[in-house]
Simulated scan of single mutants.
Amino acid sequence: MGVAIRTAGEGDRELIVRLLDEAFQDDPVSGWVFPGADDRRAKHPRLMAAFTDIVLAVGRIDVTEDGSACALWLPVPADEGHDAEDEGPAQVREAVDPDNERVERVGRLTAAIHPTGRAHEYLWMIGVAPGRQGEGLGTALIETVLDRCDREGLPAYLEASNARSRDLYGRLGFEPAGPALDLPDGPSMWPMWREPRPHRPA
């Protein structure tokens, strides 16, 4: 049975923020950004809200019809290089947790390894409700966009934040795009790239 998917709008903001917060509370990178459990419960939703607002403004969020999973995508134009002066990470830190340098640092570190030179779709985050993981919802969300990438000849890029998701992305055609990003005194993130596949009309 297929998974019903739609594009989220402003009216879905709170649903998306809550879903991402639940899905990433125990993620290694979230645990590095907010090492204390109480601090993470209090401030992690603000970080997910900041990410959601960015993507609602300039990207696309796909969500399953039942609200159990979502994927945040950003279109990246050709030749968009890393700008060391980019204020985005600092603005996110100011909005989320001004005293937490790691909120800004993770944004700057991932921006520094982001591939440049070719237009592509960037899978920023994908979240599945904890009780629904393992049902193929994440795969369905990703494949919807990858099918479009194949039709349009667009590559796709992401950073896997744990070994389980890295394996899933590998099955979907993503390959390592350079060495792992080792967060200071923290977990690793794995940059992955997928070349478009020849499109076969149905």
Rank of each mutant, 00 (worst) to 15 (best):
G2P: 15
A4Q: 15
A8T: 04
G9K: 03
D12M: 03
E14W: 04
R18V: 00
L20V: 02
E22K: 14
S30C: 10
V33D: 02
F34P: 00
A37C: 13
D38Y: 06
I54T: 12
V55Y: 07
V55N: 03
V58Y: 09
I61H: 01
D62P: 03
E65N: 05
D66C: 07
D66W: 01
G67K: 05
P75M: 10
D79K: 07
A84R: 10
G88A: 13
R93I: 00
E104C: 06
V106E: 04
G107P: 03
T110I: 14
A112I: 06
I113C: 09
H114Q: 13
H114F: 09
P115W: 12
T116Q: 15
G117D: 11
Y122H: 14
P130C: 06
G131S: 15
G131Y: 02
G131W: 12
Q133C: 10
L137D: 05
I142C: 13
D150T: 03
R151S: 07
G153W: 01
G153S: 10
Y157E: 02
L158S: 05
R166W: 08
E175H: 05
G178E: 14
A180D: 15
L183C: 04
G186C: 12
S188M: 10
M189G: 08
H199V: 07
P201Y: 04
P201I: 02
A202Q: 14
